[in-house]
Design a protein around this nucleic acid. Structure first.
Lengths: 197, 197
DNA sequence: CATGTATGTGAGTACACACTCACAACCGTT
DNA sequence: AACGGTTGTGAGTGTGTACTCACATACATG
């Protein structure tokens, strides 16, 4: 029988799982507030090895951020695919928005972007963000055929979504909060009872 | 003649200048990446005294954040006042947006909000943010008479503006960047020649 | 002038964290 | 079996920083 846990792994495979865990851990506390030891623990390896696998804490964060954009791009493509070729640009964008909403249900991908914005003065982070948003905006154009105003509105709603989730406005039952959340399909959150894996 | 610098000040007055400097310093590097020593130095007092004036680094940050919202509220009121009572809701909102754009020309107030979003999991920060946004949204309603969709769109554009400034998209001459920045009056920057006070 | 109160600081403490390095365990090849 | 390359770690090191405290300096009042 094959062992439940392979004692050894390739560096590439290890990097992949570390990045996955890094997304979750960085999303929770942000860049400066999360020690790499936390990521290492979440990945089940030593801090020392994390530093061998990545170029410092910054390299790890950038890798995690890039993973986020890759996942977002996949979701947008999938959303557009579901909408089919017959839909109007607005309909395709709507479907892509829904796909995005589903993707960020766990908050991790969304919070990574919020945290990245806060560290955007670091050149490597800024570059990764620009690459990511460039891809997302290009996808929005290419898959939906929408015009500039529509794509801009699409992105603006995404940003509003970030604010809503960061401030957890769903749990605020006041007029101002309802104004911001109106019509937004972020964080479904209904039947969540088994938090651990 | 009165001395150029009063050797002594009241705690209240000192707090005011420290908060002012704290906005600038926190805006530059964010919460976790700025030592209180930097704020103390910017304010010209010792770290020890900062800790006597505020409830820890967190209290200082929250005070700075509240100052931001207060300044934003003032700007919105001023913008609405300039628009006059005769304007349509959309026109008043437009004027308020312009006033906001002027206010955040120096990036500090805007970046403080970006950084706050990244630390929104701290209860005190979250509470301050909710108070701030509650006031801003309420003001948008009350001063413009706009409806829910209009106010939501107003706020969404504000969030998009944050992204644009954080990523410095004005200096990116590509289609995707132009899509996001279209029609946004953030960071005017043209005829500004006397930056210092 | 003595005394009290508010303003202010120098010097320290405790600790967290990014990063390193010598070394160990494993595996494929000859 | 011996060798070399890759995967992996324990145990540090240096530094940065939040927070404290005993103490100093100014001002007001009897």
């Amino acid at each position: 029988m094959e062992s439940t846990e392979p004692a050894r792994s390739t560096a590439e495979a290890r990097r992949a799982v570390v990045i996955d865990r890094a997304v979750a851990v960085f999303a929770k506390n942000g860049y400066h507030a999360t020690p790499v030891a936390d990521v290492a623990a979440a990945a089940g390896i030593s801090q020392a090895y994390v530093f061998r696998l990545f170029e410092g804490k910054l390299g790890l964060f950038v890798a995690a951020l890039e993973r986020c954009y890759a996942r977002i791009e996949d979701a947008l493509r999938e959303g557009a695919r579901k909408a089919g070729d017959g839909g109007s640009p607005a309909e395709v964008l709507e479907a892509m928005g829904d796909a995005y909403a589903d993707l960020i249900a766990d908050r991790d991908l969304l919070m990574m972007q919020v945290h990245a914005q806060s560290v955007a003065d670091v050149p490597e982070v800024l570059a990764a963000m620009r690459r990511g948003y460039a891809s997302v905006v290009s996808l929005a154009y290419a898959l939906s055929g929408a015009n500039r105003d529509q794509v801009q509105h699409f992105m603006a709603m995404g940003q509003l979504c970030h604010l809503i989730v960061a401030m957890d406005l769903d749990s605020v039952d006041e007029t101002w909060a309802r104004t911001l959340t109106k019509g937004m399909r972020h964080v479904p959150a209904p039947p969540r009872d088994a938090p651990s894996a």
